[in-house]
Amino acid sequence: MQSALKRPRLISIICILGFIWIVFSFPSVFSPSIKKMGDWYPALFGLIVASSFISYIGVWHMKRWGVQLFIITFFMKETLLILLEDLSYVGIAFSLFFLISMLFFYRRMDLNL
């Protein structure tokens, strides 16, 4: 596998934290509490978890599409949380910190897939 661009330590930490979040979020896709919210909520939440996972892999490999996908996923996730009236300011703060950090290194990232 090609890994021409050196990954900054901050990005590595962000990605590891992101992967941990994915591990903990994954079971909640099919948790009874999400299921009770409605028929399509597990599918929506699953889409967000899968997109987040792919975006972190992209960022891990220093790819710009990873950051772009992260931004899309961030808005999707927050919109869903607003609809569910379960908005967490701590969660938003973390996501924004991750996003700003990724954007800081955006120019050093690869344009290709």
């Binding site: 994915i22 896709v29 099919f30 299921k35 028929d39 597990p42 599918a43 699953g46 978890v49 899968a50």
Partner: peptide
């Protein structure tokens, strides 16, 4: 219906999550 949707969602999700890393690795081969 909700359980059918859930079953399909989990299947697709598992496929994407477990298949993306090997697939991405294959796509990056020299």
């Amino acid at each position: 219906r909700s359980n059918i949707i859930l079953g399909f969602t989990i299947s697709i999700l598992i496929g994407v999550v477990s298949g993306f890393v090997p697939a991405y690795g294959a796509s990056q081969l020299d």
